[in-house]
Amino acid sequence: KNLQNFLDLCFTTSIIPQMLVNLWGPDKTISYVGCVILLGSTECLLLTVMSYDRFTAICKALHYVVIMNPHLCLKMIIMGWGICLTSSVVLCTFTLDLPRCRNNLLDHFLCELPAMVKIACTDTTTVEMSVFAIGIVIVLISLLLSLTSYGYIAQAVLRMKSKAGQRKAINICGSHLTVVSIFYGTVIYMYLQPGNRASKDQGKFLTLFYTIIIPSLN
């Protein structure tokens, strides 16, 4: 959970200040390095790790300390960060290498990957399909694992005879389930559309959800 909070802190502090400068200040530029930093994210797999943590806390409460030992937690976090950082590096490289023919005007709040692809002056089919393929692998698999965890949690809660126990379980999972629903809903709509068919205005609105609102909820 502390690593999730650290990620959200990094996420918001790298995005919100630059966005406020661009919205309110006379200077609406961003450096190349700053744009690269804004293209990375490791949120989805960490949400999956948190789902497994809640599954263990509710479905295997008596064995929680043994199962969720520091060694296992460290391995899951390293694996999650490693996979997402690797995919981010690959996608950033593809995107930033696209020729833009001196078109450096980005119609967005920040350096969002679909917006960067749209200003390229060449065929972007390969990049768009790469984004779609990596999104399928990472986002949908992590979502499936999260839903599986919550499926077992729902069964365990329904079997509880104590109303107090049910309320406690709901309190443990409620906020995280809300974040999971909003995050995956917006990300799937944004990235898992071949050819990035989402309109510019929809893209801007949805970007605010998973870059500002979701970390704030966390």
Rank of each mutant, 00 (worst) to 15 (best):
F11D: 09
M68F: 09
R100Y: 04
A156Q: 05
T186N: 05
L39N: 09
C44V: 11
V187S: 00
L20S: 02
P17M: 03
N196C: 07
E43D: 11
V33N: 08
T95W: 03
C10A: 13
F6P: 01
D27Q: 00
N69K: 00
G203A: 04
S216I: 12
C101Y: 07
M68C: 11
F94S: 07
W24L: 15
K168F: 08
T207A: 11
H108C: 10
F183Q: 05
V49D: 01
V90G: 04
T12C: 10
S146Q: 14
L46N: 06
D107C: 10
K118M: 05
R54F: 09
C121F: 05
K1N: 15
W81P: 02
T178E: 00
T29N: 06
F94V: 10
V187A: 08
K28S: 09
T29G: 01
N5F: 15
G174F: 13
K161Q: 13
K163E: 14
L158E: 15
K1M: 15
A133M: 10
V139E: 12
K204M: 12
T29K: 04
V117N: 01
I15P: 00
Q155D: 15
R54A: 11
S142R: 07
A169K: 07
L74Y: 10
I182Y: 06
I30F: 01
L177D: 01
T122M: 11
M116W: 07
V117Y: 04
L140T: 12
I78L: 12
V139C: 08
C101L: 04
V66T: 14
I214N: 15
V33T: 09
L217C: 09
L23A: 12
L147D: 04
W24K: 00
Q202A: 14
Y32F: 10
E112M: 12
I172C: 08
R197M: 14
D8Y: 14
Y184L: 06
L106C: 07
N103E: 08
L9G: 10
M116I: 07
F109P: 03
V90L: 12
G203N: 11
L113Q: 11
L208W: 10
L192Q: 01
A61H: 13
M129P: 00
K163Q: 15
K161I: 00
P17I: 05
K1A: 15
V179W: 01
A198G: 08
I78A: 08
C84I: 01
S14L: 14
K60Y: 04
V157Q: 12
S149M: 06
A120C: 05
T207D: 02
I182T: 02
I170H: 13
L62P: 02
T211P: 02
M116S: 06
G34P: 02
Y150A: 05
K161F: 05
Y152A: 11
